[in-house]
Design a binder for these strands. Structure first.
Lengths: 335, 335
DNA sequence: GTACTGTGCTGATTCGATTCAGCATGTGGT
DNA sequence: ACCACATGCTGAATCGAATCAGCACAGTAC
């Protein structure tokens, strides 16, 4: 296989019998503006096709200063299918605007994060999306304040950078309302409140829950605290049930907590939804695995990814903060 | 905010009182080879630091012809946390070799896939990793045969391209052996065989299972067929148990199938592992959610991602086909 | 015939780093 | 005093496209 020299614009120009300048104008669709005749335009385009010309991307960006590339830095890109859905959304939106995504994963290491940001910037990405696996407040590397940046699934501690987040307060309200409206009168309790939350999802969902309860003139039962995962939730719930009756309604602060809760309820012989109604958050795959499927408030992850890119490229103004609603994913877990 | 001109190598050189050439040599760590004095070296490095110099990446690659960038095309990057772990591995390995990953997700659309490949190539990526969510044989876009390409989690139908895959045959063998060695004598059955597999994982795991059974002089019981997901597995298994006793050992072809199987067993009052021993494949998060945790053969996804990059950059030869072993993730599901 | 306007194109420079070929200077040998 | 050789550095060309300033020519206006 003879390693041919790449075809350059000069080759195209020579072949079409015009100057490189002319070829360049045509390449960039400025023929009208530059008063290039129809004939020449066609000739050059043909030459490009014949030679299979591909513009050299480095040369182009060296002059243009725009790389048609967006950097995405995240703490974890693999995280229970979560952040990868953010990625999918962002990627699709980027493509629609003729951009590609370059990704960096910091594994939660601030030093690596700093390094990745520098590296992305040195590649002159057109902007950076700074994403986190779990919704929280973040202190971003200073450099990000000097360039186009949008936060995804997190908020700037200083409140300066535009951000896209799920509307967890609203979701909390909705979750509680679902149970309230189900008509049962018994106690409603929450499973999963974290005593020392670094994430914002928990507290915000709690706020919403309290609001809805208050509005309905009802009082929330005691909360069962645990880490947001299956095993901790199961154990916490088993602990609770060892000394208490199950309440009429349970709000699990995410789907993994719901999974553990289901297991505990089952061990104690309670049936969902007959004995206990359950609602949950996230709307992950796991929600559909339960029997009966748990009614869960689905995070609009795909859409969040998309909107972040839109903000970034569409000129989101500083301090824009987009809160996207969670949607109800109906299961059979509410009586 | 005064928009300052970017710091270039010329600025650094001027500040250090040397030529751009010298600065460039130092930047590229060739001081020794180029006989640059210790003093000068230090002076220039200091200037770089003081000015916060960042090499312009486009300019650099324009000359060097290497973009230090790898393209990754995948059908689905978000897929049950799976492929995103491949991504994490690939990303980490790329970083270690001073490369970044540009990603493209085709959503399974061959036309989009073609387009993405072209786009990545026009950006002169140093190579392309072609990944799939589920292990299978693929027909790749022709252009990939002309450039450095490594397949990840899939195999070239023509057998020409280097590939990294899980060793599912070996895993099948191991899974069966675990049950055989557990000492129980009853029947062993498989759950999840797909009648029309597009993926290779199923058939290969079956091959391994048959091999091990045969070697042990035992015969596999009838297979319960179903799609590889929780609900289909649950229903298939419920169907089976409606008319049969549960076997002594069950091999679930993946963790989601195991989840559904557990549910069915439980409904029929069988206890794991007391009545039935269960082994499974994938070693996903879901395996750890079961009670008791299911013993599962873990896909080395992270490592696969890493090895793909290593092959790509380290000069994997055509026809290299790396089969990485699955490791046993011990649960409590085997008596 | 001169002035003016519009049309269609091009030469030369630029972006920022890499790299080849070479130029001073010093040092040692004879 | 002359050559050989090492040391330490630099000027200028180069990568491929984008772009500014301007040139030649044709047509119209007076």
């Amino acid at each position: 296989m003879p390693k041919l020299r790449r075809v350059t614009l000069t080759d195209v120009a020579r072949r079409a019998g015009v100057s490189v300048t002319t070829a360049s104008y045509i390449l960039n669709g400025r023929s009208a503006q530059m008063r290039i005749s129809k004939d020449t335009d066609i000739k050059v385009r043909e030459a490009m096709r014949e030679l299979q010309y591909q513009p050299n991307w480095s040369a182009r960006t060296l002059r243009r200063k725009s790389t048609q590339t967006i950097g995405l830095v995240s703490d974890f890109i693999a995280g229970g299918a979560f952040s990868s859905e953010l990625l999918t959304g962002a990627n699709a939106a980027a493509r629609q605007r003729d951009h590609l995504l370059v990704i960096g994963e910091s594994q939660g290491d601030p030093e690596l994060e700093q390094l990745l940001v520098e590296e992305l910037l040195s590649r002159q990405v057109d902007g950076i999306v700074y994403a986190t696996r779990t919704a929280r407040e973040v202190e971003v590397p200073d450099r990000l304040r000097e360039v186009r940046t949008v936060l995804l699934n997190c908020a700037d501690a200083r409140g300066d950078l535009p951000a896209v987040l799920p509307d967890d307060v609203q979701a909390g309200r909705t979750a509680a309302e679902i149970l309230i409206r189900s008509g049962r009168d018994g106690t409603i309790q929450v499973v999963g409140e974290d005593p020392t939350p670094s994430a914002t999802a928990g507290p915000q969902r709690m706020t919403g829950i309290h609001e809805a309860m208050h509005a309905a003139g009802r009082v929330l039962g005691p909360t069962v605290a645990c880490e947001w995962d299956v095993v901790p939730a199961r154990e916490a719930m088993l602990g609770w049930l060892a000394t208490h009756e199950a309440p009429a309604g349970l709000i699990c602060l995410n789907d993994r907590v719901a999974l553990g809760t289901y297991q505990a309820l089952q061990q104690h012989g309670y049936a969902v939804p007959h004995d206990v109604s359950v609602v949950s958050f996230d709307g992950s795959e796991a929600a559909a695995w339960l029997q009966p499927e748990v009614t869960s408030l689905r995070l609009p992850l795909l859409e969040m990814g998309e909107r972040a890119i839109d903000l970034l490229l569409g000129g989101g103004r500083v301090k824009d903060m987009l809160r996207l609603p969670l949607t109800v994913h109906q299961g059979g877990s509410v009586a």
